[in-house]
């Protein structure tokens, strides 16, 4: 950042920390991991469609689709959204509330079976 010597505040200054401008220094992790995850996500999507046609509808098939969705979410959040390179506690802050949501989702799909039609 030496080329920007006309800046008034150091955006990376840890000593005189100013939350309105402070950003951690950015590091590139290369592009090979990104492309690897692209191929995995494409493969999982195609596997979903194949499973749809070869596997008759059942609760286990639905669980399979949800698990595949969570697996895709894992790669998107981890690599694309950079979560695996962030502070671990930030990850927990986001992922733990979603764990309850997944439980709720399955619960309400089960509950719906006993409702009258809407």
């Amino acid at each position: 950042m030496s080329s920007h010597s006309n800046q008034k505040v150091d955006i990376h200054d840890e000593v005189n920390y100013d939350p309105t401008v402070w950003v951690p220094k950015a590091h590139s992790h290369g592009t090979s991991d990104i492309w690897k995850k692209f191929w995995i996500l494409s493969f999982l999507t195609i596997a979903d469609v194949v499973a749809y046609f070869v596997w008759p509808p059942s609760i286990s098939r639905n669980i399979f689709f949800i698990v595949m969705g969570i697996l895709k979410a894992w790669f998107i959040v981890g690599t694309f959204m950079h979560m695996k390179h962030e502070h671990k506690k930030l990850g927990y802050m986001i992922i733990l509330p979603m764990a309850f949501i997944i439980f709720f989702l399955y619960w309400m799909m089960y509950e719906g079976n006993f409702w009258g039609t809407i």
Binding site: F104, L105, M108, E111, G112, G116, T117
Partner: peptide, 10 residues
């Protein structure tokens, strides 16, 4: 999506 899941299986 939770609403969808419940209504779908009703």
């Amino acid at each position: 999506l939770i609403g969808y899941g419940a209504i779908r299986y009703s």
